[in-house]
Amino acid sequence: MVPLSYYLVLSAILFACGVAGFLIKRNIITIFLSIELMLNGVNLSFVAFAAQLKSLDGHIFVFFVMVVAAAEAAVGLAIIISVFRTRETLNVDRVNLLKL
């Protein structure tokens, strides 16, 4: 069997990559993708703990995280489309005003 700590280290690596992408990237869509990567890293540790503790609660939490991520993607991408319509750019450094 694979030890629990391996899964948790993989989860930490994915989460750290997501944080790094969130901070480094300047494209608003890539920043959004990094958030999804962080959510995936957290989901992995939920499932790993569910298997370790022999409890299905972790799977339910993953299910809810996925639902929230889907809702977030829908609203976030709508916001991105509306930002792009008004500013013609996807660079977050050029989106520094709430109202034009």
């Binding site: 809702a71 829908a74 609203v75 991408l77 709508a78 509306s82």
Partner: peptide
Amino acid sequence: IAIMGAVVLA
């Protein structure tokens, strides 16, 4: 709510 928000925003 997310569906309606997406429709309104986009």
